[in-house]
Amino acid sequence: MIAVVTVLLAFPLGYLLRSHLAANVAYAIAYLWAFTFQTLYLTLSMLGGDDSAFSKNEFPISYGLVAAGIFGIGFGLVALGHRVGSRRTTRQAVS
């Protein structure tokens, strides 16, 4: 779910919003909502006996690392979208 939010929202937010800070905050809010929902879903599945995400006996450090990596990639996509969007507005202003 967090990967879907990142792919669908990060670049468009950077592209469409003028403020880089506003785009980063909007992405962070959407990502963190999805992260909370996903973590709750996986935790409830684990408590129900499904060990496919992470087991009961170990701390899921790999889950946290992957989630942090996706979060960082999303900020990179926001920055890329902002750069492409600012070039578009610069070209229109010159023309």
Score class of each variant (00 low, 15 high):
G74Q: 00
R18D: 11
S86L: 09
L40S: 09
F71T: 08
A68W: 03
S45T: 04
G74T: 00
T90R: 14
G64H: 03
V84E: 01
A30E: 02
Q38I: 03
A67Q: 03
Y27E: 08
R91I: 15
D51V: 10
V4F: 10
L8Q: 05
G48Y: 06
N57G: 12
A67V: 03
W33G: 12
R87I: 14
H20Y: 13
S95H: 07
H82T: 04
V66Q: 06
V94I: 13
F35L: 15
S62E: 15
A30P: 05
E58Q: 14
F59Q: 08
G85F: 01
I70A: 12
M1H: 04
F11A: 11
I29A: 13
S86D: 14
V25W: 02
T90N: 14
L16P: 05
T39P: 03
A10W: 00
V4I: 12
V94A: 15
Q92L: 14
T6M: 07
L21A: 14
F75S: 00
L47T: 04
A28L: 10
Y27A: 07
T90H: 13
V84K: 00
A10E: 00
G72M: 06
A3M: 10
S95L: 11
R83A: 14
R88A: 15
N57K: 09
H82G: 10
A30G: 08
S52W: 11
G76S: 06
L40R: 11
T89P: 05
A68Y: 04
L80H: 00
F35V: 12
I70Q: 06
I73K: 05
I2F: 03
R87M: 15
Y27I: 09
V78H: 02
Y31P: 07
S62G: 13
M46L: 09
L42D: 11
G81M: 04
I61Q: 10
Y15N: 03
F75Y: 07
G81H: 03
H82Y: 09
G72K: 01
A23E: 01
A26Y: 01
R88G: 06
D51M: 14
M1E: 07
V4Q: 10
A53M: 05
N57A: 11
G48L: 10
T39W: 05
L40I: 11
A28D: 06
L32P: 05
F75M: 03
Q92M: 09
L16Q: 11
